[in-house]
Design a protein around this nucleic acid. Structure first.
Lengths: 333, 333
DNA sequence: ATGAAAGCGCTAACAT
DNA sequence: ATGTTAGCGCTTTCAT
């Protein structure tokens, strides 16, 4: 039925080993025999069985990717970066969505390991105990993309969230604001809590602005929750005049919430986002945003993973990519 | 080093076959032995090697997914539908991006086949000859998601694009428009050419409105090209007063192009999109749109694929999902 | 209910 | 440069 390496060997009057050699580009084959074998492969339309190859070589040329949700632009761009580099190095990716559920994350990793992936790229707001447990058992390399883990030196690719947050809030302060809200994703995430929130506070502190906990609102990373947060904050006795948003969807929620309340952006309200997906350019006014290089974080993570999979020397486990503040129209010049 | 089924068998004083049976939930095992084996599995932290299993059983429990570009919201939502149902049936997905390049599509399918996936979900504007060739060689089921192929009866999941296009354009005509533009993705795509374009023309025809080829603009499915198309069309002697857009990004490009030109939507310009991703709600005015059930198309495609993989009877190869016209603010009531 | 044994299709020593 | 052979870790008859 299906053509195997054995069939090719027989038809070409060589051994399986020789066929294997030409298929794998081994140089120890006389050009003449190589041609002969190639001809038979062509004639029989032979295709190596990657599963058999994986079993014999203990390498599957596939890597696992665990992300919260592919339908979120943020992760989608990241995955594209991963996939492009994976392709470049002849890997395929098994994509899984965790919805940030600790149980599910651990289970997904377990499944990926049983499928013998050569490595894993992982994204998660917070590494749960279950997940860490599972990671420890794994003998293959794992790279964290846009994910921080204080408790270990798991390789990771990130930006300097803290500095970026400081810069964003300082920008708002520079425009004279003293009531600056921070609408953030889950504070269980160490990035949000230990890096961005502290950056927000540091900038306020440095400007002698009192920190008001009412101005920090924790929401899910969605457009709808951005609107909700805006409405909640505007109902304060002293509502904020500027917003620092945890991501683009939240920022757009705030923006449209303001518009729907007949407030002008950036006239009455100024907004800085933190992500800079293409969504920032698709709304009016276009959003000023901290630009996270999503595609690059994915790409670099995958590149880093290939190094580990090849047992190459890696100078630094934790790579930091540059960010920048992308000035657009939701903040006055 | 790694624990194998043989180690478990030895420790539990049973044969590999018995271990295999309990792992696979075969009922022909005495409860007592089952317990004994389970205990050893737990103790040794044994995990079945899916690659070995795949080689022996000729089933890998993984399916391939070929889409143009995961960073496009459209495909991302679709993939989420696929993945959710795949998980439900205990499949994993290998995700690949084709960028609609015929060569690459064929190559990706080939790679997936060599990896012995049990099935494939495929999305593509146009099935090229190369790709069709590769599909013919494949002995595993393939389902087309949001993709039409006139020349074969490959299973597929779609909506009635033609009827949807007619309805959208009729809606615009009802508001008194006679200069209605159609800004579409590639007309090489049979959906765009044979279904949506003909729907557009049919609606105009039925209303005795002359068809002006200047009003049909072919672009890439991006926001930027939407803006470009708008500018091009507005420079006509008789510019259109209403737009039918091929997808949400194009529609948003038109919308913001209009705003940037100080035109009011829907006052001066009315727009209907064709996709209804969450982007429609994230802009002002919110976009009226033909709602394509993206997630469902993915989910149903995957469900259909499982049926084929299980050799279940399938009543109809081509399933049609309902669409609807989602009325929002880019069209006057 | 359980075991023995033959593959699945390939790679990787090792030998020549 | 080429061939021989022993696995890789599992499933699946076929016996018992």
């Amino acid at each position: 039925m299906t053509v195997t390496i054995y069939d090719v060997a027989r038809e070409a009057n060589v051994s399986m080993a020789t066929v294997s050699r030409v298929v794998n580009g081994n140089q120890n084959v006389k050009p003449a025999t190589r041609q002969k074998v190639l001809a038979v492969i062509e004639r029989l339309d032979y295709r190596p069985n990657a599963v058999a190859r994986g079993l014999a070589s203990k390498k599957t040329k596939t890597v696992g990717v665990i992300i919260p949700d592919i339908s979120n632009v943020f992760y989608a761009e990241l995955v594209r970066g991963i996939e492009d580099i994976a392709t470049m190095y002849r890997y395929n990716i098994i994509l899984t969505n965790s919805d940030q559920q600790p149980m599910k994350e651990a289970q997904l990793l377990s499944t990926l390991l049983s499928k013998q992936v050569d490595g894993v790229v992982l994204m998660s707001d917070q590494l749960s105990e279950e997940l860490r447990e599972e990671m420890k058992r794994s003998s293959i390399p794992i790279v964290l993309a846009g994910t921080l883990d204080q408790t270990s030196d798991t390789p990771s690719v990130n930006i300097e969230y803290h500095e970026a947050a400081v810069e964003a809030v300082e920008r708002l302060i520079r425009n004279g604001h003293t009531r600056i809200a921070y609408v953030t994703g889950s504070l269980k995430s160490s990035i949000n809590r230990l890096h961005k929130l502290t950056g927000y506070e540091k900038a306020l502190d440095a400007a002698n602005i009192e920190i008001d906990s009412d101005l920090v609102v924790e929401v899910n990373n969605t457009y709808e929750e951005g609107i909700r947060a805006f409405e909640q904050l505007q109902s304060l006795k002293q509502p904020p005049t500027a917003y620092f948003a945890g991501n683009d969807e939240i920022a757009i929620g705030i923006l449209q919430g303001a518009k729907d309340a007949d407030l002008d952006v950036p006239g009455d309200i100024e907004i800085i986002s933190f992500e800079d997906s293409k969504l920032t350019r698709m709304v009016r006014p276009q959003l000023t945003s901290i630009a996270m290089p999503l595609y690059d974080i994915g790409a670099v993570s995958m590149r880093l993973l290939t190094k580990f999979m090849n047992n190459e020397k890696v100078e630094d486990n934790s790579v930091i990519l540059p960010y920048r503040l992308e000035e657009r129209q939701s903040v006055k010049q």
